[in-house]
Nucleic acid binder design. Sequence first.
DNA 1: TCTGCCGGGTA
DNA 2: TACCCGGCAGA
Length: 437
Amino acid sequence: MGANSLMMGGGPLSPPVTSASTLSPVSNTGLSASALNAAALYSQHRGPLMDLTTSLQHKLFHFSLNAAASTSPSSLSSHSSSSASSAYFSSSSPTSSTKSWSHLDELMLNTAIRGTVDPKSKSSTKSPSGQSISVNSQQSQQAQSHSSQPDPSVVTHSVSHLLNLNDSPSRTNGQSTSDSGIVVLNKSNVIKFGVRQEPNVPVLNGHHNSQPLDLQTYPKSLSSNIGINGNNSNNGLPEIKPILAKVSSNSSLSGTILPVPLSTTTISQAKATVTNSVAGPIGPGSLTNGVPTVPRRRGRPPGSTNKKKKLQQQLQQQQQQLICAMSLIPGANGGPLNAAALSGHPFITSGGLLTPSAGDHFNQFAAAAFAAVSAQSAAAAAAAGGLKSPGPNSNSSNGGRKPRGESRKCRKVYGMDNREMWCTQCKWKKACSRFMD
DNA sequence: TCTGCCGGGTA
DNA sequence: TACCCGGCAGA
Ligand SMILES: [Zn+2]
């Protein structure tokens, strides 16, 4: 029931496309204008498409392209001056919670989409063409290892294998009313895809009798024309192609994912109808010459560090302690030190550091204070610098950091493989909101 | 080595 | 505010 309402309930497409009235997908998709138009054009001839990126949010599986993982952090950010198109790609540290697309497999797809795990579908999925997912993984690793520029065709190939797309659009029956679609598209640097939520619709047909998506991978020039990720060939970003497909609910082909023929004319037509009135994450400002660009990913850029700031804080703290200690010097018993006394003191340098020099009137009191402060600041620096604090019970409430709770949190409960099941806070590396202590 | 999460950057 | 990640403390 949900599927049908999703399919039928969609309003007209937001961009003023001529075929908008014939299209029934949800419009608030965040898909690129050209993609929407391509979908519109397709649905005009072939029947309605449904954007599952929106309708199946909770079932969506998402992953980041990790193709640039092996590059240095500086090369991760777009080096093009067009900051609008800059994007980051997650590094794949061992503890990284981001799933590399090369690790995507059928099991995860089924888990993500159907919420169930089919134990026998784990790993080593073979396609009839003799290629397997592991081959794609190898390809991806190759792409990762020797180049900061991932090979977009590898991405597309792999996705097509994973989705097991059928390459025969002619098998589509004309009954558009019983067909719904699946849209696989890029949104920022994340590919999202899914199928409509309907029981008993196998996402991946069990026979793996499909072909790879080669016929969907139009050449680079075309993908540039359609405006996916812009046509800036040297912007350091991988090209992510739109993949449009539909799920047939025909009895004999139930669950088979049929590709949408993105013909050259369709693409060019789609390009011609690109407008600036696209709503969604790809905002109006990110369209340049009708070419949507990839917005920069939110969040802390990978590779950024807190060390600089921390060092600064450390220094400041040190100085403060110094001043406090120096307040012992002029007064008899640690009376407050006024500015005049401090500024006139021979041991306070412009940098705020105390530099006792031989021959000066460096009294014992000051020496003692200096030693004390030095020891203190050294300890503080050691603590802040990542050295293990010395004793087991070094401090009961160190730094105001609350002690770790004893309950298992989402990460432990669901595991890294099911990150989509974690609570939001855990996803963000914040204090878990689901398993409170 | 893994887990939990704080601090802070970015949109 | 939402999202994301470096890095630290502790198990
Ligand atoms: Zn949680």
